[in-house]
Each structure stands twice: as structure tokens, then as C-alpha cells.
Design a protein around this nucleic acid. Structure first.
Lengths: 147, 147
DNA sequence: CTCAATGCAAATCATTTGCACACCC
DNA sequence: GGGTGTGCAAATGATTTGCATTGAG
């Protein structure tokens, strides 16, 4: 799937979501979704705001906040809050690797996926009679020093 | 180990830490540590501040922020930031259960510990040649609806 | 006595909110 | 047209900072 195909697909998912919820299909919502899916990296509100600014496409921060909330609810982005006050986001539909290793030296983020997590979740659901809706796992790592 | 023994022990750990780092042994630092270890629950800065206020023991919020940073560095408390802007803390030396289930209905927090996590960490350390310093795992759950 | 630590208030910064206007339906 | 969504600026709330004062070493 090319990046353009991917963008096309998530736009369709957004349309479906907006129609289901009877929300309006505003150009801002599609533009923000598209910009997010063009990015390969994690991003914060400000950098997204600046991308639009550079393109002379006018979107207010309030709208970006609102829209990210909406996309979060639609399941099209993920939100991270690793230790910092400021939240980070990433596109979140096709890249199924849910977990993250944070390199504390340079804050590089590596994604991974380990089936044992899913097993742990299943075990807890059964043991405690609850439904686990989501999870977040971060490993904080640093490159091994050579002594 | 009784709660008093525990408080005694962590105070000694704090002393050791302060001496190593050549920091001063102020009454505030010990008082804050003690209050935290008297609590059984997770807490935020404000509730800790209010505890001192009620006791007419004067500690400023700036000092509480500073001291929590210090205790964090000393490994005597843990910090959480689950989605919210406001951070939560908990005592963190003797209670070895590191992972948390957040009940999204009432924000109740359940602790647990699963050895599979440690195994995942070990595997990654070996596979990627990094040292994993810590991790955080949250499961977001809700009580199962009875249909 | 000296300088690190505290207390207070002001500053900062991310996020939220209120309200007028715009534009999707 | 009607009401939701947007934009802007002001409000909020957690955390940080500056600076004068205190007290640990």
C-alpha cells in the first residue's frame, strides 16, 4: 500500500466515522488527518500547527486540539504522554505496532509489538472479569556503554 | 514489616542518598517522604500540599515539586502521567508491583506484576544491545457489562 | 559564615473555554 | 437558514522560575 493509498483509506474511515456520528465533514478535519498520515514520526500539537502555518493553510490551534480529540475517538491517531506535560501523537491505524521503546539519550522512539502482552491482557480479563480496552507499554532504554 | 519500620527504612535510604549526593538533610525532605509513605494510595501534588496544610506544617508547593523530583531521582517514589495533564505519584520502594490497571469508570488503580514483562525486557536488551532502565505498563479496563 | 534550600509570587506553557463569525447540511 | 465547527483571544491550571530569606553544614 503506497502512502497515497493509505491516506485515501483513512479519509474514507474518517468519512464513515463522521457520518455515523452525524458530525460535519469540514475541510480542516480532512486536512489534519492527511497531514498526520504524511508524517512518519511522532509529533506534538505545535509542530502540526507549524506545518499548516508554513503551507499558509489556516487552522487554529483550538481546531487542532478539537480535531485530534475527534480522531482519537475515531481510532485514527494515538496519544502518548511519556513523563512530559506536553502530549505527543502519532498516526494510528495501519501501523499496528503498539508499544514503544524510548531511547532516553536522544528521545528516539522505536516501535515494537510482542504477542506476550496480548496474552497478559487476556489472562487479566479472565482472572478479574473486566474488559481491557487498551494498554500502553513503554520501555526506557539507553545504548549500552562499552567499558 | 510494619508501616513504621518501613518509614524508618526509607528515611535511612534518603539519608544515604543525600549524603552520597552531598545534598542537605532538611526537615521538609524527611517530612514529605514520611507523609508519602503513610499514604496507601496514589496522590497528586495538591493533595499532598493539603495534608501539610491541615497539619499546620508549612511546606510550599515549590518545595513539594522540588522534593518529589529529588525522591524520584533517589528511587523512592514513582511518577505516573496517565493521559491527564496533572501527574500522579506513589511511594515506590517496597511495593514491588510495578504495573497498573486503570479502571476507566472510576479511575480506581489496581497494581499487578507479571514476570512476562521482565522476560520481554530481557529479550529486547539482548536483541537490540541496549540497557532497559525502566518501563511503564498500563492496562485500561472497565467492568464487564452484564447483558 | 556560606551557599543550598525554602517560600512566595509572578511567569510560563500546554490546554481549555467563551463567544462571534463562518459554512456544512 | 439553523446550528455545528472554527478562529481568536482570554482563562485556566499545572508546573517552573526568580529572588529574597532562612537555616544546614
Amino acid at each position: 500500500m503506497t502512502k497515497n493509498d493509505e491516506i485515501q483509506s483513512v479519509k474514507e474511515l474518517l468519512t464513515k466515522y463522521l457520518e455515523e456520528k452525524k458530525y460535519r465533514k469540514t475541510p480542516e478535519r480532512y486536512a489534519i488527518l492527511e497531514e498526520i498520515y504524511k508524517l512518519n514520526d511522532h509529533f506534538d500539537i505545535d509542530s502540526l500547527y507549524n506545518i499548516f502555518k508554513e503551507k499558509n493553510f489556516s487552522v487554529s490551534k483550538a481546531t487542532i486540539y478539537n480535531t485530534l480529540e475527534l480522531l482519537l475517538d475515531a481510532g485514527l491517531v494515538r496519544k502518548h504522554q511519556f513523563g512530559k506535560v506536553q502530549a505527543f501523537y502519532e498516526k494510528g491505524f495501519f501501523n499496528k505496532n503498539h508499544d514503544h521503546i524510548i531511547m532516553i539519550d536522544d528521545f528516539q522512539i522505536i516501535e515494537f509489538c510482542d504477542p506476550r502482552i496480548e496474552q497478559i491482557k487476556k489472562d487479566f480479563e479472565e482472572a478479574m472479569g473486566v474488559e481491557i480496552l487498551s494498554h500502553s507499554l513503554y520501555l526506557y532504554a539507553r545504548k549500552k556503554e562499552k567499558n
